[in-house]
Structures are given as structure tokens and as C-alpha cells.
Design a binder for these strands. Sequence first.
DNA 1: TCTGGGGTCCTAGGACCC
DNA 2: TCTGGGGTCCTAGGACCC
Length: 433
Amino acid sequence: MSAPRPVALIDGNSFYCSCERVFRPSLDGRPVITLSNNDGCAIARTAEAKALGIKMGQPWFQIKHLEQDAGLVAMSANFELYADLSDRMMTVIGQYGPDQHIYSIDECFLYLDGVRGNLTDYVQQIRARVLQWVGIPTCVGIGATYTQAKLANHIAKKRPHWRSVCDLASMPRGAMATLMREIGVGDVWGVGRRLAPRLQALGIHSALDLARADPAAIAKEFSVVLARTVRELRGTPCIDLGDDGTAKQQIVTSRSFGRPVVDQAELAEAITEFTSRAAQKLRGQGSKASAIQVFIRSSPFRPKDRPYSAATTIRLTSATQDSTALVNAVLAGLRAIYRPGVLYAKAGVMLMDFQEEHIEQLDLFSPAPAGPGAARDPGGTALMQTVDHLNTRFGRGAVRLASAGIEQGWANRQERLTPAYTTQWGQIPIVRA
DNA sequence: TCTGGGGTCCTAGGACCC
DNA sequence: TCTGGGGTCCTAGGACCC
């Protein structure tokens, strides 16, 4: 346990929508939303869109009428653009302190110990530079712990006249308590929609109530996780976010289909494509997988259509990062769980049980290399490197396994996709004088 | 007609062992 | 006949996050 250091949580406002506004200033002041894959539901909303009553995750078909009725602008999610602007934003913020932790595509923690003078003034400089250099508006919360910083960020968003910054770390206890009394317990980081009602039933309604609860009693009644939240609210750091460079422990690639899929051959195409993408991520972090899971399911929203959901996990005889080996395993798994006559809505794969790629655990039953100096490439490493290189250079899917299909009629609908303004030469905006 | 995708950590319970 | 208690490992599922 370490002494509290002031930490800031900096996040982009309505991040995906703000990215779109960077290249379409005419969207300023208008209600804008970004749609999930398949144009399924709203995953980012500007303040104007929230004011129309649009909820996070709300299905598009329920709000589509607002295009006509309220001038709503909806766009398909353009993750290539968002990832690039995220990199730029994080780089700018990272210049303001040596200890930055990128928590998600649109937010990061930045430690502020050692900053001389007023912390609010300091983070206002960061906000101004991110806005000027990247074009993204931000909010900042400062606290003695991650959970306090999150809470402060929430407060900053609720009080526009604070100019988007709230510093709980420098605030007198009484003032902090007054603010925390006004925040619902469900708005505390770590309290979701299941825990909130249970806490309320015990008389814990506000962030302040939770901060004043007994951590031991909370651990007993709920979990050690929630007890940590209590201590963090009180200003004792006890959450470890790990290193940013740490490799993922599992890699998931899954998609809802653009239309129902019945045919096993078509499912096999999709599964092949997902496995190839997952394997590329696996190689990108220098890991090999020892197991892979495949799952298929019908739509949970159409229970009349013969509900079916199945998954199976395939253990590999030795860990690999070779797409073809992983695809072969997963297709065998698919054959085992496929049922004819089901309208499949979604499928996916999950790579698990990783090893570092330089560790060579030979399969007991595979043939030994044929003599000294034999040209041996157990993971298909050279081929996979070439494939990854070509796909990075020429765009995803430039080179792929034939079994992933050419037409890919099951693929996403993305009818409102904006250009990749910053990462594709052909889509860079041209400004004419 | 139309409802996302990708992660983490913790816990409970079963199998198995001594 | 009597039918303990503690430990480990694994998995499935639940909770949370964005």
C-alpha cells in the first residue's frame, strides 16, 4: 500500500462522436450518435443526442425516426479513425507526466505528483492542448485514487460551469462530502446495475454512504472487490491496473451477422475469418494459444426462432500462433456443435491459455525435425509474418485463407460509414482554397 | 425486417488428493 | 459400523468495465 498521489482521469467527451466532428465541423451543436457494428444500436451520443432522450445501447430502429423529427445524425462506427485519434490524444497527454495509464480508447489516468502549483490550472493546459492539436474536447477528474478520480470526472461532466474539471484531491473534506452526497451509489465506478439495488436495500444510496460503509462488512456481504471500492472512495489506493504493455490473457473476435445464417459452410467462412483476425492479434502481442473456443447462437431477441446457443473449447496439442492450425481446430469444433435448421445471428472465437512465442513446447507425438539444420518452421512463422505484413500494408483482408470466403454475405451492415480520414491515403480530406 | 464487441477479476462448486 | 477436514486445481458463471 502506497501513499496517495493525486491522479487525473482524462477522457474524451462523447469520444466517437467528437472524432467525427473533427472532420465535419457542421456537426457541432447538432445531435449526433455513433452506431455499433451492424448499425445495431447507439454506442456514443453527443450532449444534444442525450437531450433527445437517446440511451446508451438503444437499438437504432427505435430512434431512427429522430432523423426526420429532430435532425439526428447517425454514423456507423469507424474504429480505424477512432483508434488513430486516440493514439494522438494519448501521446499529447503523455507529455504532461511520466506515469500515464491508458485505460480505454477514450480515457487515461495521469499521475500529477510533482506538479507545482494549482492542479486544476495544470490540467486545463492539457485540455486546451488536446483540443487544439487533436480536436477532441475532454473532461478531467482528480482524486487521491482511481475511484476518486473517476468520481471527480463524473462530477465535472455534471457541472458545466466548472469548466470540465473537478479536483477532489485538493478539496476540503466537508466540501467533498457534500458533493459525494449528491452522487448516486450506482454512479460509482465498480457499482453496476446488479449491485446498486442491493446496496440501496441496505440504506446505501449515495457515494458518501458507500464511502462511510465498513469495508469488512461490505467484503462479507458482497465481495472483496466492492470492499476495495469503499477504501478507494476514502482515499486509500488499492486497485492495481497492471502495466499497459501487458499482453492480453484472452483474445475474442465475434460478430453479429448482417442477416441470419443457416448454412454450415457459411458459418465456417465466418469462423475462419474471425479466427484469422484473432490470430493476427495473437501474433501482434507475441503469444501462442493453447486452447480456442468457438461459439454460435441464434438471436436472443427472437426466441420463437428455435433458440440455440452452443460453445466448445478445443485444447491444442501444442500452443500455436499459426492461423491455419487454429482454423483447423475451430472448424472441427464447429462441426461438433452445429445444428441444422437454426437461424444463427452471431458467432465468435476466443483464444485462451497463452504462452510467450519464444517458448517451444514440443508436442510429444509430433515428428522431430529431420536432422541438424533442417528447415523447420513449426508455427508457420515465416508465412504468417508475411501475411500480417501484407494485411497491414494493403488493408485487412488483402491476403486471407480461401475458406474465409470471397463474398462474405454474412458480414456486417455498415451503411453510414465515414471515411478513414487519417489512415488511408485515398480518404484524406482535401481542402480547396 | 431492425438489439455491439472486447476485456478483467472473483467466487462457488466439483473432482481429486492425503 | 463409523463416514473428517484441509488443500489444490479446474471450470462455469457472475459481476464489473469501456
